[in-house]
């Protein structure tokens, strides 16, 4: 995979045209190594969600370059024709709320992704079981999402994000609904998973409780990113 999980260079995103044009992202640069967890922080309206949507290949940036692992996926235009497959196979998503599929049990919520990628049911379920065990929710594998606690749901969401072993995971305020203890537990889990599966994880957050845990932080202000060293405080 090399030294790059994801690299973004001079990324820009403009909404509208002419006098009404708005530059949501002006000059975004960031690099996250495999196994690294970085924080992306910034005030409301600073462009965090827009950046996440660009990185998640759900909206097209106006200009710039994006490299995923060794592959250039965007260079003033998408280099990959099938963005759906790109999202499925190479980008993991963790949302503010877990957003598990309520009518699938825990195992199938995780196994769905490998199945969508074409894996056989048995192999997909084995992969799901392994991930759930690794995230300490293996004992709830046959439970329905509604039967899980908030923390368990978020761990299942993390397992789902890891299901296809993507080089990068985008976590959109994953600790927002959790108390301090559970929020720190989620970050601890993300760090462990990033290291174990050599995945680059970008955590968008406002959460003051978890910001000190990042070793590196990207501040986004007025559509531009500024790299800062984080405290990298150890989580008990």
């Amino acid at each position: 995979m090399g030294d790059v999980g994801i690299r973004i260079e001079n990324l820009r995103k403009r909404y509208g045209e002419g006098d009404t044009a708005v530059d949501a992202l002006k000059d975004v640069n960031m690099t996250v190594a495999p196994g690294e967890v970085v924080g992306l922080i910034g005030p409301s309206g600073s462009g965090k969600s827009t950046l996440l949507k660009c990185l998640g290949a759900v909206i097209e940036p106006s200009a710039g370059r994006m490299t995923l692992g060794d592959e250039l996926i965007f260079d003033d235009g998408w280099k990959i024709p099938d963005l759906r497959a790109l999202r499925r196979d190479r980008i993991g998503f963790i949302f503010q709320a877990p957003y598990l599929i309520p009518f699938l049990d825990v195992t199938d919520n995780v196994a769905l992704l490998p199945m969508l990628a074409g894996q056989r049911n048995g192999a997909a379920r084995r992969r799901a079981t392994d991930l759930l065990e690794a995230l300490d929710v293996g004992h709830r594998s046959h439970a329905q999402p509604a039967e899980l606690s908030g923390g368990e749901q978020q761990r299942v969401a993390i397992a789902r994000a890891l299901a296809n072993q993507p080089p990068v995971i985008l976590a959109d305020e994953p600790t927002a609904p959790l108390d301090s203890e559970r929020a720190l537990a989620v970050i601890r889990t993300l760090n462990r998973m990033a290291e174990q599966y050599r995945t680059a994880i970008i955590v968008v957050t406002h959460d003051e409780k978890i910001i000190p845990t990042f070793r590196r932080i990207y501040q986004i202000r007025d559509g531009k990113t500024y790299e800062e060293a984080g405290e990298g405080r150890a989580i008990a």
Binding site: R88, F93, L113, L116, R160
Partner: peptide
């Protein structure tokens, strides 16, 4: 709607 958005985001085909 939210589940469908998640399904689409994680790569579920429209025909599925």
């Amino acid at each position: 709607i939210r589940e469908i958005a998640v399904l689409k985001l994680i790569g579920t085909r429209n025909r599925t």
